[in-house]
Design a protein around this nucleic acid. Structure first.
Lengths: 157, 157
DNA sequence: GGTGAAAGGTCATTAAG
DNA sequence: CTTAATGACCTTTCACC
């Protein structure tokens, strides 16, 4: 979907102050309220904005340790492995990838010791041949979208 | 922070229907309006809920390709490399990790061909010794938090 | 619990592609 | 000619005290 400069400013504003209302947003952007509403509707209809789900911090829930695990899967076991991983609450995200290793998942745990339990649960399943884990130490760039939005907005394509 | 069963139900409800109001939420949870407001305040004060930022889909913005790159960094160049990566809009996330490779970043691109441009920009920097990239094919488990929340809520600790 | 304030919808008019 | 923006009005709903 093509995003114009106003969409970009709207998304940036929403990212900075999520609790802002449509009316207040229209004031900040110096456009009519209906315009902001129409843009929001369009962005949501086109899937650019998936939703406004609460941004929950696993660390604040008692899971301060994050890790990425690369898994190697036996041929034909993909579907079973996916279902298994989806059933583990500490698996926050799962991707199938190219290259060595067939899946990449993001894990959280209560401590480094607890991570061992999580990994055991994750890899203790037929079809997972091998796993290599990298523990996250710092997160210099937390998941962000604003720079990309601004680049997309400036590229009238 | 300790989460009880009501917090868990509230977070689950918010994740399912983010645009819900405090009043409507209190009806669904069958508790008083003030209770929901107090819980929300507490969850936000304690950092469990970071915010309600818009959930933007990079694919809908024209960046349907996702990849993870593992970077090996020269000693003492960490800070410079971080600043460089933070300046690239297509870098959505950056972690420093243990093990072989020193950083892991999530990238998006307009196409597989465009990914080459992004990778060139990412690794074309003094201090980055080596990079290995895995392209994401499928995403069987998109970033999620509800299962973890429910586990945390059921573990009265 | 009451009240001021938004959200959300519709409309006619106007501007711009 | 088609699409979008605007300001006006309305009703319902919510947030805050």
């Amino acid at each position: 979907m093509k995003i114009d400069e106003l969409d970009g400013r709207l998304l940036t504003l929403l990212a900075a102050e999520p609790r802002i209302g449509v009316l207040e947003a229209s004031r900040r952007l110096a456009v009519a309220r209906g315009t902001v509403q129409a843009r929001l509707d369009r962005l949501q209809t086109n899937g650019v904005i998936r939703g406004f789900g609460p941004d929950v911090d696993p660390a604040a829930l008692g899971y301060p340790v994050t890790a990425f695990a690369t898994l190697e899967i036996s041929q034909g076991q993909g579907a079973d492995v996916r279902a298994h991983l989806a059933s583990v609450p500490e698996v926050l995200e799962l991707h199938t990838i190219t290259g060595h290793g067939d899946m990449l998942c993001r894990l959280v745990a209560r401590s480094n010791a607890d991570l061992q339990r999580v990994i055991d649960r994750v890899v203790g399943f037929d079809g997972i041949v091998r796993a290599s884990t990298a523990i996250v130490m710092e997160n210099p760039v937390p998941l962000r979208i604003v720079p990309l939005v601004q680049q997309a907005a400036s590229q009238r394509e």
